[in-house]
């Protein structure tokens, strides 16, 4: 059986080259607008950038996937449909979609375009996945980060679609694409605008030796003088329930499933995905290189190297296997 495919993020052309050079099998990216779920300032690709990215990647036998994974705005489907049309014209290897209407459009208009289902569609069970397979010919599903490894294994046994899972990076504790927390605090949401906890609504405010981070009208965290800080992603904030301030939803940790490679292989997972289109090329290069080494070692039956040097890269300096283990729940 083939080894895992390694799917890597790129927010800029330089990051794409870093990911390709570090050993990615495929790189995923987004256009420079609200059609993708990392619509951050200064990030993402123009049409020309994508053309160059495809040329660079294909010359090195690396695939390019374009994420068009927000939900098109009612009355304004144009930008999303153009994104699909342009991705097809630019000969990308797959588009990663979430919206039913857009999947319907892509399947009808571009029958040869490979369709992947974004994690933002949050297809968490076999029946949901079969729907996307039968209705639109989706070839691969990125699984939401709510399933344990045994659940993934059972799911793979029931569907005839490739599955891709996140192995490294930021971790949504909520079912992806089904979360309006950011929208509640700021009016901007991952589903509509492609932003979660947008920087335009973030402020850092020194309070003596402490540092408070705010999002919209709400304080998301207060860091003590010696505490590592974090970006105020709403669900990674510290809140007070039952009179106790705590990381109620999720600690500021990073997913790292490197120790679970054998389990994920046994569960029938086809591709492993690294999160972080918003991160710098230094981060992407380091993480992709570490995973490339680990996958090569795993494929050759050698022990998987420790990834201690990734520790410094991750939020809070802490790593977790997240929902893959039942104890997380």
């Amino acid at each position: 059986m083939d080894g895992f495919e390694l799917i890597c993020p790129a927010g800029t052309p330089a990051a794409l080259r870093a990911a390709v050079d570090a050993g990615a099998d495929a790189v995923y990216l987004g256009f420079r607008d609200e059609t993708n779920a990392r619509n951050f300032p200064g990030l993402n690709f123009t049409r020309e950038d994508v053309a160059e990215a495809v040329a660079y990647a294909h010359a090195r036998k690396v695939e390019v996937f374009v994420a068009i994974n927000t939900y098109p705005q009612a009355g304004g489907l144009g930008p999303w449909r153009r994104a699909v049309d342009d991705a097809a014209r630019l000969k990308v290897d797959a588009v990663i979609l979430a919206d039913l209407g857009l999947l319907d459009y892509a399947a009808g208009r571009h029958p040869d375009l490979r369709l992947h289902l974004s994690v933002q569609a949050s297809a968490a069970n076999a029946d949901a996945i079969q729907l996307y397979r039968e209705a639109f010919g989706v070839r691969r599903v990125v699984l939401p980060r709510v399933l344990t490894v045994p659940e993934i294994a059972r799911l793979n046994a029931q569907v005839d679609v490739e599955t891709e899972v996140f192995v490294f990076g930021g971790l949504c504790p909520m079912a992806e694409g089904r979360c309006s927390l950011s929208s509640y605090a700021t009016g901007l949401s991952p589903n509509k605008q492609g932003v979660c906890s947008p920087a335009s609504h973030v402020r850092y405010e020194p309070r003596g030796a402490a540092l408070a981070s705010t999002l919209g009208d709400f304080t998301i965290n207060v860091f003590g003088a010696d505490e590592p800080a974090g970006y105020p992603t709403l669900c990674k904030g510290r809140f007070v329930a039952r009179d106790t301030p705590a990381y109620l939803f999720e600690e500021p940790t990073s997913l790292n499933a490197m120790d679970l490679l054998p389990d994920l292989k046994a569960a029938g997972v086809r591709a492993l995905k690294i999160e972080g289109r918003q991160r710098g090329k230094a981060y992407i290069g380091a993480v992709v290189r570490a995973y490339r080494e680990a996958l090569d070692a795993f494929a050759a039956g050698r022990p998987v190297p420790r990834s201690a040097d990734l520790q410094a890269m991750v939020e809070g300096g802490a790593q977790t296997t997240g929902a893959y283990k039942r104890a997380w729940r």
Binding site: T12, A15, G42, P198, A199
Partner: peptide, 15 residues
């Protein structure tokens, strides 16, 4: 913060 992020991301896109 958005200004800083925009600059950081843009510069990071260069070699």
């Amino acid at each position: 913060t958005a200004l800083i992020l925009a600059l950081r991301n843009t510069l990071d896109g260069e070699e």
